[in-house]
């Protein structure tokens, strides 16, 4: 087999790289077909072009940056949930102590009773009864609320604690009044999520995006209900959530139902869904 000149080697390389014009290519291909050495070089040089291989990086998830975005921006739900948990925790501790003190009282009473049986003329000392009474009254529900550690800051802003934070309406109002939720956020919530009309009709949000590809988790978020007289409807329930999840699986977005305040004509979701996606902007994308 003859040695191929550098010039032809370069030409064949250019051919395989796709850098030749049609006429140059045709001419060179003709030469290759008529020359065994050129053809051999062409064939072996062609073998040096690698076929891309399917190799996957095993830890893709580990590289991703994650953020979550909650449809209803339910920070006030979270804080109220925290408050409720604290309350339950406090209540459990208290009930334990109350039980202990009740037991103590019972023991004392039974001791006193037995003493009375033995010595019916002798009455229990007043100071002892007052002591047990003080123990019980120290753990009334009123004092429980006082013991709950209130919210002290929100998004870096100091939050003046209030013993009435447990009141859901008041808590929400405080967040809005103190601008812990910005106007744009409120607007965004209103426009994107709660496309409610004055008749409180269901609004289907239309999109051209495959929701099921983006949504990674759907969780039920319950909004503690407003007082009954303020609500027009409070219908969202577990069934709706199941339906919503099914729709999301199919790549559709579920209808949202709302409750509204009659007096102030405010909207408020009774039950929402918390959607976790790779990024917050993906959620925005869904609801564009």
């Amino acid at each position: 087999m003859k040695e191929i000149s550098e010039e032809y080697q370069w030409k064949i390389f250019e051919l395989l790289e796709g850098n030749l014009s049609e006429s140059e290519r045709n001419e060179l291909e003709r030469e290759i077909n008529n020359n065994e050495s050129l053809n051999h070089f062409y064939q072996t040089l062609k073998l040096t072009y690698l076929e891309p291989q399917e190799i996957q990086f095993p830890n893709k998830q580990g590289l991703l940056k994650k953020s979550t975005f909650t449809i209803f921006k339910n920070l006030y739900f979270q804080y109220s949930a925290a408050a409720i948990l604290l309350m339950i925790g406090g209540y459990m501790i208290v009930s334990q102590k109350v039980n202990q003190s009740t037991l103590k009282i019972k023991q004392e009473v039974s001791t006193i009773q037995s003493e009375q049986t033995l010595k019916p003329e002798i009455k229990p000392a007043k100071s002892e009864l007052n002591k047990t009474h003080r123990l019980v009254s120290a753990y009334t529900p009123k004092s429980i609320t006082e013991q709950i550690k209130p919210l002290v800051s929100f998004r870096g802003k100091a939050f003046k604690p209030s013993t009435k934070l447990i009141d859901e309406n008041q808590f929400l109002n405080q967040l809005v009044d103190n601008q812990y939720l910005s106007n744009s956020e409120k607007k965004q919530m209103m426009l994107k999520w709660l496309l409610i009309n004055s008749n409180n009709q269901e609004v289907e949000v239309s999109k051209n995006i495959e929701v099921s590809e983006i949504v990674t988790e759907v969780k039920l978020v319950e909004q503690p209900l407003l007082s009954a007289e303020e609500l027009e409807t409070a219908e969202l329930n577990e069934i709706w959530v199941k339906e919503a999840k099914e729709m999301l699986k199919k790549g559709q977005f579920p209808k949202i139902k709302f409750v509204t305040s009659k007096k102030e004509k405010k909207w408020l979701p009774s039950v929402g869904i918390e959607i976790q996606t790779e990024t917050a902007s993906m959620v925005n994308q869904i609801f564009k």
Partner: peptide, 12 residues
């Protein structure tokens, strides 16, 4: 973050 994650998906 979204752009970054897209690059992770497309380039890793």
């Amino acid at each position: 973050i979204e752009e970054y994650n897209q690059i992770v998906y497309s380039q890793s």
